[in-house]
């Protein structure tokens, strides 16, 4: 879904429980988001941020409730930025949510919503949930999850570990791979990374889809040269810490398994990746 000029203020009530809004919300776009959250803006910009609104609700003797609604331009980006930092897979609000110690994060359609009341009180927690519910109802549609996420094999998949991104910086989310973009990830590629539980071992699967096969071939070659130059033949290689890396180029899709405890596990995971739904 392409972003349009929705009035985000319409998603926000004047009051919630006994908290009153301090007035009109503050809008930020790609140029001004830095003024609000400084360097933290780069995270949202890397996920295609379009615009956002911030509003504060106040009640004497209680923490302020700070709400931010981010229009991420597409539901894929909203899912992506939510997936970036979630630790749990709670579905209480929107299409996925997480609540920890006064902070509620969730996504719906192309919107990513953060509601913070810190330090948490019983009253503020109730109000945060009430506000989340009101905003959720005001967003009429649901969004789609990126197609590449559906290609992850379900067996052993740790659902809350799924991370979707279009910027190479997030390649190191679970496992340091490189401080450079050795897989040529850009805003035109789609990447998904997830953990798989196999006995005591957590294996990491990375899928990267490129705009065309030519770009995928170049990226695959660069990755092999810089990460596993020894992999002349075959799909696997045991690296210095004893773990196995497996990788394969399949059309415009690069598949890589990291941190497998056994070669067979790496190959099995590589072999169960679903075909694109077309």
């Amino acid at each position: 879904m392409i972003a349009s000029n929705i009035n985000l203020e319409e998603f926000l009530p004047e009051s919630v429980d006994v908290w009153q809004s301090e007035g009109e919300g503050r809008y930020y776009d790609r140029q001004t988001l830095y003024e609000y959250i400084n360097g933290g803006a780069e995270l949202y910009l890397s996920y295609g941020f379009f615009c956002s609104i911030n509003k504060i609700y106040q009640q004497s003797g209680q923490p302020d409730i700070i709400v931010d609604i981010f229009d991420m331009g597409s539901s894929e980006n909203a899912f992506g930025v939510f997936s970036h930092s979630r630790e749990t897979n709670d579905k209480q609000f929107g299409q996925g949510s997480q609540y920890t110690s006064g902070l509620l994060l969730y996504w719906k359609d192309r919107f990513y919503i953060s509601i913070l009341a810190s330090p948490e009180t019983a009253e503020s927690k109730r109000a945060v949930f009430q506000l989340a519910s009101q905003i959720e109802k005001a967003i009429p549609h649901k969004g789609s999850i990126p197609e590449i996420v559906d290609q992850l094999p379900p067996e052993g998949l740790i659902q809350e570990s799924i991370k979707y991104f279009k910027h190479h910086i997030w390649l190191n989310s679970y496992y340091f791979i490189s401080d450079e973009n050795i897989l040529h990830i850009t805003e035109k590629t789609e990447a998904v990374m997830a953990k798989y539980q196999k006995n005591d071992n957590k294996t990491i699967l990375l899928l990267v889809r490129y705009p065309d096969q030519e770009k995928a071939v170049l990226a695959y070659d660069y990755f092999l040269r810089n990460f596993v130059p020894e992999m002349k033949e075959g799909l696997t290689y045991q690296i210095e810490d004893g773990s196995w890396v497996a990788c394969k180029l399949d059309g415009s899709l690069i598949k890589v398994v990291f941190n497998a405890s056994e070669e067979q596990n790496a190959l099995e995971l590589l072999g169960t990746i679903k075909q694109k739904n077309k």
Binding site: I37, I66, F70, G102, S114
Partner: peptide, 8 residues
């Protein structure tokens, strides 16, 4: 986590 980075 979240736009304000912070969670106690």
């Amino acid at each position: 986590v979240g736009p304000h980075d912070f969670n106690s």
